[in-house]
């Protein structure tokens, strides 16, 4: 464990807590893409299957349980509990255009042709594009609540910090995982436009208003 990965995991944890608090306090899921949240639930489910077969640390296990649990709670909030406030007209990204190519790529490009490894690879590839429905929804509605912007900033920062973690691990531990690094770069690059808007607008008290 290093500081980059720890801060990254905390940033990821913060993003999920911000999202749940926004939903619970405002009793609304307005502006939140249910499709992205479904993709995140798939990402965690396919990535943490080794939860039951291997033990790395208390931290590792508890974070995996938390991420899986909260991802399903979030999907439940959107499609059941706060369904009336779900803006399905603006959440129209065709996720099958993400899942099918990512599934095919995981099948072809992986470290080892075993079920667990292919599912892990699928999860890594899927996570890199899972935010697209949310970013698409923000561009369609033309704006995002500031709390949603904070959620996205924390979520985007987590993988950017993981990139620093991989640089650190490469130099100090000789650890290198090309699949995770490439997907992490794609994932972080997708946030760049949002990061720019967040830093130039939200931090100055303005709301994000993308050209619709």
């Amino acid at each position: 464990m290093n500081i980059f990965r720890l801060v990254g995991d905390m940033s990821h944890l913060l993003a999920i807590i911000i999202l749940l608090m926004k939903m619970w306090k405002s009793r609304s899921v307005a502006g939140i893409s249910g499709k992205s949240q479904i993709l995140f639930a798939i990402v965690f489910t396919t990535r943490y299957l080794d939860l039951f077969t291997s033990f790395v640390s208390i931290y590792n296990t508890s974070m995996k349980v938390f991420f899986i649990g909260t991802s399903y709670v979030t999907v439940y909030f959107i499609y059941q509990h706060f369904k009336p406030t779900y803006d399905s007209n603006h959440d129209t990204f065709r996720v099958e255009f993400l899942i099918v190519p990512v599934g095919g790529l995981a099948f072809l490009v992986n470290h080892e042709f075993s079920l667990l490894e292919i599912l892990w690879t699928f999860s890594i590839y899927l996570e890199s594009v899972a935010i697209l429905p949310q970013l698409f929804m923000v561009s369609k509605t033309g704006e995002a609540e500031s709390i949603t912007s904070h959620y996205l900033f924390a979520l985007g920062s987590y993988r950017a910090l993981y990139l620093l973690n991989w640089i650190y691990r490469y130099y100090f531990e000789g650890f290198f995982d090309l699949i995770a690094v490439v997907a992490g770069c794609v994932q972080t690059i997708l946030y760049c436009d949002f990061f720019y808007l967040y830093i130039t607008k939200v931090l100055k008290g303005k709301k994000i208003s993308l050209p619709a």
């Binding site: 990965r5 990535r47 974070m63 650890f175 290198f176 090309l178």
Partner: peptide, 10 residues
């Protein structure tokens, strides 16, 4: 590159 299971990263 070493990338064995279990993955120690989240």
């Amino acid at each position: 590159c070493n990338h064995s299971l279990p993955k120690d990263e989240l």
